[in-house]
Design a protein around this nucleic acid. Sequence first.
DNA 1: AATAACTTTCAAAATATTTTGAAAGTTCAA
DNA 2: TTGAACTTTCAAAATATTTTGAAAGTTATT
Lengths: 167, 167
Amino acid sequence: MELQEAKNEFIQAWGTFGSEWGINRTMAQIHALLLVSAESLSTEDIMEQLDVSRGNVNMNTRELIAWGIVYRVTKKGERREFFEAEKDIYKVAIKIMKERRKRELGPVLETLNELKQIKSSDKESKEFKRVISDISAFGESTDKMIERMIKADENWFTGSLMRFLTK
Amino acid sequence: MELQEAKNEFIQAWGTFGSEWGINRTMAQIHALLLVSAESLSTEDIMEQLDVSRGNVNMNTRELIAWGIVYRVTKKGERREFFEAEKDIYKVAIKIMKERRKRELGPVLETLNELKQIKSSDKESKEFKRVISDISAFGESTDKMIERMIKADENWFTGSLMRFLTK
DNA sequence: AATAACTTTCAAAATATTTTGAAAGTTCAA
DNA sequence: TTGAACTTTCAAAATATTTTGAAAGTTATT
């Protein structure tokens, strides 16, 4: 298999994987492209290689930068900006967890906490409260776990925690 | 806040949360509705309460059943089938992890393993291989972690592992 | 200050996903 | 069997999301 062919296959696979997890396909593809590019790429480069529009590249690179997994880099003597992916996959994973925790887990936990306040005199209300509290407790634990991972030494993944988890 | 109002808010929140994670909104809403319903519900009940079509309810209940987080129940003297959600939230979480691991993580790990086989003589190919191998290793560890959680005693969540993770 | 090089915006178009609902299929009781 | 009660299917319609591209905005250079 050619290198270029392999790269393209990876870009496809990463795009599919991303969209299965609620991440827009092009965003995941741009991320994949940057991951496997030796050099940093310009907007124009990305447009060409993925055959998408300027607006689309602009939108998604900004989003990737907001997630903290792609960096803007400048080159001397160049007006244009270039993009480069964070290649440390553990850092990438942590940044993604951090971002999704903030954007999606946070809001749902807030809602659950409000709903837990409902007065529960009758049996049905008590049952409702129990279900909500269970989910909330689970969510809080997950949240704490992510928080821990984020705060942990960047070697957490190869450290004792991970060895324990993955045998 | 009324119980009914609280239930509706939960159904909304759960639907939004689900769709942010690549799960179809109605599927998540049906799941939420069943979670907070004291009694098991018929197709008709779900249609009414969520104001969606019969086909939609049929499709999504089947999917929820395929995920193993909703059960079909029959009542004596009733032709119709009723639906009931698994209320043990740890079981639900495990089933979801298991299913998504199988459906989405598995395929991507297979692809990565193929791509790792590429011959890498030049520098660029070596670099590509390194990136792919890193992602693959991360994926495999995650996979093993999920496998462990699935196999673990059903109290894993409150057990030593989880206490370690969440302090 | 004018121009060129580049980036950003956003309404409209394209695409993808979800939902509908009527028709076909199934099961069971009479 | 028949037909009533219920479930399933799936093409078409509705909806939601993503993408485009041209115009507006910005910044650096002359």
